Amino acid sequence: MKAFTIVDQNTGTLRETEIPAPPAPADNQVQLELIGTSINPIDPLVARGYGAPLLNTKRQVPLIPGRDAVARVVEVGKGVIGLRPGQRVLVAASPRTGGTYAETFNLPRACVVPIEHGLSDVTAAGLGYAGLTALQSLAAAGLSADNARGKTLCINGASGGVGSIALVLARRWGATITAVVSQRNQDWVRHLGADETVDYRDAAAIAAIDASIILNFATPSGDHRQQDPLLDGLLHRAPTDGAYVTTSTPVLGAVTEKGVLRGLGTSGGIYLKKRLAARRAGIRYRWVLFKEDEEQLAYLAQVFADPNTLSIVSASQPLDALPAAFNDPKGPPSPGKGVFMVEAP
């Protein structure tokens, strides 16, 4: 069958290949037929061995990347309930599991939820992994649909896939949002509902941000021990409901460089030091690492099936365009999510 795979983790180049069809799904697994998928920034990194001591311990090749998809159920394994052949499903898989860049693939039941007609294939193709990461980041900051109204929120990296979904959710919940993005992406985040925009290169404007909650989805340059102006400003203001949450952690980089034990020890030390400093100022400080969650995935499917919810997909291309986009050194299509469909919508 057709798949897009990595055969050499030294280069991380994605290529179209022919591989054997997967076996029948094991217990608590689902076999799926791809309808559409997308690229997340972590995918090209994992393809080059990033985080391999945790994510690809056997250095298995060919490696099939892909974290999210919209797909159709082919077959269910023993113990699977709530799914049947022919159903459309929303997929969000961690980098530890098999990828979605194949005609047919098997995933654990926890990676899959059924979706209704209101959620389009194009939106679903880019929603799962980034959407769960966004939702889990909001939860780590203590935000939900029940309490976000009136809160002031800054989203750094708001024009990326995770940031765009977090923006849409927080706006839906009633938060007031400052989006930190490049100049060229300011129209995009305003369209999604940002109340204010700040150019990430404008140090004075960054320092003037007065939000009580910071979500950082941008990858900083240099050492994670370096100063972070958004965190420093929050610690200085010390709002009573303050929180700082980031998906940009040194965990995978540290284990790649130093191995599992030393890498986890190093990154754990950085985390404890920063969390302690934040606690002294009364600030909630959290790192977010993606985890599969059926309930949260079902919530995303419901929200983005609402016709009043803005789409976070900025471009849709044929599936054959996936390798060129994946291998582009400039990174995944942006702003928002670019998706790749088996059949043109």
Rank of each mutant, 00 (worst) to 15 (best):
P25D: 10
E343K: 14
G160Q: 06
V61P: 00
F326V: 09
N28C: 03
S144V: 10
D43N: 06
K330G: 14
P85M: 11
W188D: 09
L231S: 05
D306M: 10
R184F: 03
V260W: 00
L235R: 15
A140H: 01
H236G: 03
N40L: 02
L272P: 00
Q227E: 14
K291T: 15
N56S: 04
R88S: 08
N147G: 09
R225N: 14
V113Q: 10
P108W: 08
T247R: 00
I283E: 03
E257C: 01
D199K: 11
G51A: 08
Y271R: 10
S314E: 09
G118F: 03
E295K: 13
V74E: 09
G118I: 08
Q9D: 14
N185Q: 12
L107M: 09
P239V: 07
Y101T: 02
P23L: 08
V181L: 13
N28F: 11
F290S: 07
D241I: 07
T176G: 06
V168G: 03
V313M: 05
D328F: 11
T17S: 15
V189I: 09
P114G: 05
P95D: 11
P220W: 11
A3D: 05
A204H: 04
H191F: 13
L119Y: 06
T249V: 14
V70Q: 03
R286A: 15
K151F: 00
A194E: 06
L127Y: 12
T152R: 14
A141L: 11
L132Q: 11
V313P: 06
T309M: 12
A125Y: 09
L319M: 13
D199G: 13
H191C: 01
L276I: 00
G338L: 01
P333Q: 04
N185S: 15
D146V: 09
K58Y: 06
V168D: 01
A204N: 06
A238K: 15
A175E: 04
K151Y: 00
D328C: 09
A243G: 12
G126A: 02
F217V: 06
V288R: 01
G66S: 09
V91E: 12
V260H: 00
P345M: 03
L252K: 03
V74Q: 12
I39D: 02
D146F: 01
V251H: 02
G79M: 08
P108H: 10
V46H: 11
L119H: 08
G49F: 04
P62V: 04
A170E: 07
S94F: 03
T97K: 14
A254E: 13
A194F: 05
R172V: 04
K258I: 02
D210G: 13
D195M: 07
A124N: 02
L215G: 11
I206E: 00
P250H: 05
A175K: 07
R237Y: 10
G233Y: 14
T219W: 12
G163T: 07
Q317P: 01
V61E: 00
P65W: 06
G99A: 07
A218V: 05
D195C: 08
A205T: 05
